[in-house]
Every structure is written in structure tokens, then in C-alpha cells.
Design a binder for these strands. Structure first.
Lengths: 157, 157
DNA sequence: CAGATTTAAATGCATTTGCAAATATCATCG
DNA sequence: CGATGATATTTGCAAATGCATTTAAATCTG
């Protein structure tokens, strides 16, 4: 009798929106991103520009295609975001020494300063998200996120 | 001596990108959304259209502004996504009985069918995200997400 | 080593997005 | 009840986005 088809995924209606993790995550991130929009606008930053600066504040001189992955921004979108950041003196591009097709990106002092202005708001937004959640729970949550990132990261850096 | 300024947020560099929850979540959701793009394209769905259908498959006849919140889509963007879904016969709009300014949105049978085609891919994408993560851990994770949603939801529905 | 293939980044272009304003209706207050 | 302000949705428009293509340089292959 072992002739059953593979078990069908339970319907979304059965799980309920609020038990479907990607829904919850999209919803939470939507709010997080929205809550930063005003501060970013004040600094003349869009989401792609902010993300690029955030990554560059931590990672020294990545290639543009690496930065696109870290910052979760389409390469062509990033290319134009970098144009603007460069025009504003917040980053500079440098042709890679070993591969002259490739370009490395560096944050400038002005870029670092700009990001330092934004960072407290980002930290506060995170704190709001985790308000009332014990530290152990938060740590476990971040641990799970790291496993998830490893899962989806098969062909990425 | 109690004259210190409030503790500054640790720098992103100190936390590290991979300990900053919003970064991890954005990165994971970026991949999740990308992994569905192809299936959606096949069905002629954009992200806003897909999200609207997903919510409508679970919630019966919400107002457009409610749908915008549930689906995490800007209202004006949603308005146009609904135009397209309606043109394709996947949803229909109905003026609210008590308030003729307001519009309720209903999924049609065709819309439900379209979403049913997409759903297995969404379920599979979630499974990939949680690959190798024990069920208790997943449940705890979703529990934390629900608390986080409650936190950011102060002024929402 | 020449030609073909792959890779990195930038760009052309049609579509999408989101802000602000417009439109339509409802609620409130004197 | 009429005027004023609030609310729901749509729409105009400039800017941003993403796909596909181009350009340039590296790598592979026979």
C-alpha cells in the first residue's frame, strides 16, 4: 500500500499567516526599514546606499559583486548607488590590483561619519524589535538566523 | 559621580554584521524573495501581487489599507497591483457597504488557483531556510518573531 | 598564442515605485 | 444643516529598479 504521493504542504490558511516565518520576517523588516527611512532621507541615503555604507563600515574594500551580496542589492542598482555615494564623497572606487576588470570599494571618513550618524537609529530600531524579549531568547534567535543564512548561502560568499 | 551620558550603542563593527539581527533577516529574506521570483514571473506575478494574493487567500475581504499593512506593500503600489490582479480576474474589488469611500478586496477562484500553484514553492523555500533546524528550535524562532511583530505593531492592525 | 568563453562592472531602457496631490466620502462641530 | 477637517483610495510624475546588453579584461582550449 505504500503508494501515497508525497505529503502535500499544508495550506497557508492552515498554518496561518502568523505561523509562516517568511511572512513574519517580511512584515517585521518592512517596519524596520520604514522606521529608518526618515533618518536616511535626512542624510540623503536610500536603502541601497545605506546598506552599502553599513557593509563598508565593517568590511574593508570588497569587490562590487561581493558588496552586492552582502548588502542584498542588485548589482546594477548598487553600481548606481555607488555613483551617488562617490559623488557625495562617502566612498571611493579603486581598481583591483590583480584583476583590472574588478573594482574594490572603500568607505571614506565622510562616509564613516555619515553612517555613524545613522547607526544609533539602527541600533534603536533593533532594540524596539526586541523590546521585552530576554537576552537568552534573543541570542537563540540570532543563532537560528545564522543557521538559516548558512542554509541559503550555498553558492554565495 | 553619576554623571555619565547614556551608554552609546556598540558599533556595528563591534557587533559584527552577522550578529545584527536586521542584517541577517534582510539577507535571508532577500534570498527567499529571489528564490520565488522565477515561479512568480511564470505566473505573471510581482512581489506585491503575490503578497496580496497570499494575504487574500487567508483573510476574507479586507479593506485596501488593511491589505497594504498585511501584505507589507505601499498603498499606492498596492492600488496598482490590484488593478492588474483585477484585470487578470484574480481578485475583485467591492465598495464597502457602510463606507462608500472604502473598498474591500476578494480573491476569486482563479486567484485562489493561481496562489495554490505558487504555494508549494513558498513552502519549499521555507523548508530550505529551516533545513537541519530542529522543530523545537523552529517553533521557538517563530514564537520570537510573533513577539517582535507585536512590538512593532503598536499603531497597526 | 589566437579565438572562444567566462567574469566584472556599467549602462540602456521599459517598468515599477513611492511621494505628494487629487478625488470622493464621511464625521464633527457650531 | 453647512463648513471644516479627517479618512480611503487613486493618480501624476519624477526617481529608482531590474533585466538584458555592452564593454573591458581575464581565462581557457586546442
Amino acid at each position: 500500500m505504500n503508494d501515497e504521493s508525497p505529503p502535500a504542504a499544508p495550506r497557508l490558511g492552515e498554518i496561518g499567516l502568523t505561523n509562516y516565518a517568511p511572512y513574519l520576517m517580511n512584515r517585521i523588516m518592512g517596519r524596520y526599514n520604514a522606521s529608518l527611512r526618515e533618518e536616511m532621507a535626512q542624510l540623503g541615503l536610500s536603502t541601497p546606499k545605506m546598506r552599502a555604507l553599513a557593509v563598508l563600515s565593517v568590511i574593508e574594500g570588497p569587490l562590487i559583486r561581493e558588496l552586492a551580496i552582502y548588502a542584498v542589492v542588485e548589482q546594477s542598482t548598487l553600481s548606481r548607488a555607488l555613483d551617488q555615494l562617490q559623488a557625495d564623497g562617502l566612498i571611493r572606487r579603486e581598481t583591483d590590483a590583480e584583476d583590472s576588470r574588478a573594482t574594490r570599494v572603500f568607505i571614506t571618513e565622510a562616509g564613516r561619519a555619515s553612517f555613524e550618524t545613522l547607526w544609533p537609529h539602527m541600533a534603536a530600531a533593533q532594540d524596539r524589535m526586541f523590546r521585552g524579549i530576554p537576552d537568552t531568547e534573543k541570542r537563540a534567535f540570532v543563532g537560528t538566523l545564522q543557521k538559516m543564512l548558512a542554509n541559503i548561502r550555498k553558492h554565495e560568499i
